[in-house]
Design a protein around this nucleic acid. Structure first.
Lengths: 157, 157
DNA sequence: GCTTAATAGTTGAGCCTTCAACTTCTGACT
DNA sequence: AGTCAGAAGTTGAAGGCTCAACTATTAAGC
């Protein structure tokens, strides 16, 4: 920790470009969803995960892991989604501490209404701007980053 | 807009991996900065941009553009930074509407103190997990995304 | 069986961001 | 000079996120 390994010129360029692209992209997607579907992207993801479960419901902690969200964040989010009638909380049968979040029909409808516009935006801003090769490259790069953060190497300070 | 071009399996995989990686990465970086330097990443970027200006100051609107931030966000942020004594507002000489944000010595010191830990985190979580080739690939990909969002093709609905 | 540690989830305060006004000033046009 | 559209910044309210407590329940160790 005594002397710092600064970024090289190439690394610096990449990092700033990545930062810029990601900021722009996420802002654009969030704005599109907020405007056209009345929800932030994190809520959209929650609905997606629930919709993919056969029972359209999932344990809170599992849902938090899947959406890479803190339990606190998820708890607040589900409370909001419940107010809108898009999600219900159901007590867990086997564990009295547990809660299941269940997607309601209204929630499914909201998701179905939001999806086309969102996918179009993801295409317009990201997927359709890349070659098939780049799609593969980005997938690999993202995988490496996820693996690195999930399995902290050593100190992590 | 009548029928939707959903993502292919490959595209879907990439998109989710990218989403996951970016969420994890930005959360990790934000937490590191907040914990060790007491500032969110957006504030760090503001300080960086100011520090790179010869006069250590910049017009508010220019700074907003450079940091990809809304004017409102920047205004709030600079207010916060001013409270901490890291930035000062200075009236613009040539345009009475204008304000310049100026990095103070204390602000520069705070940035200098924060930088090593932040760079180490960027390395640990991103740069050092990629090959030189991947650094170049990601730079190119990010550039394409930025170009696409900056120059909206057509409808953008 | 009893104690203790760990898990599941919630809550409230504080902070950051967004959005939509709003004020002030400049520049262009007449 | 006079008008008026647009630019520069700010502000306050509303909503989402983080952090640190906190409750309730389960699992583990003795």
């Amino acid at each position: 920790m005594t002397d710092v390994r600064w970024l090289s010129a190439d690394e610096q360029r990449m990092w700033r470009a990545y930062l810029e692209a990601t900021n722009l992209l996420f802002d654009a997607l969030d704005r599109q969803l907020q405007r056209d579907a009345g929800m932030p992207h994190t809520y959209y993801e929650i609905l997606v995960r629930l919709s993919e479960s056969p029972s359209r419901s999932m344990r809170m902690s599992r849902l938090a892991d899947r959406t890479r969200s803190s339990r606190s964040r998820l708890s607040h989010a589900v409370a909001r989604l419940e107010e809108r009638g898009w999600v219900e909380r159901v007590d867990c049968a086997t564990d009295r501490r547990g809660q299941n979040a269940r997607l309601t029909d209204a929630g499914f409808a909201a998701l179905a209404a939001a999806a086309p516009g969102h996918v179009a935006a993801v295409r317009a801003h990201l997927v359709d701007r890349l070659t098939a090769e780049q799609v593969e490259q980005l997938g690999r790069i993202a995988g490496a980053v996820v693996a690195g953060i999930e399995a902290p190497t050593s100190d992590s300070s």
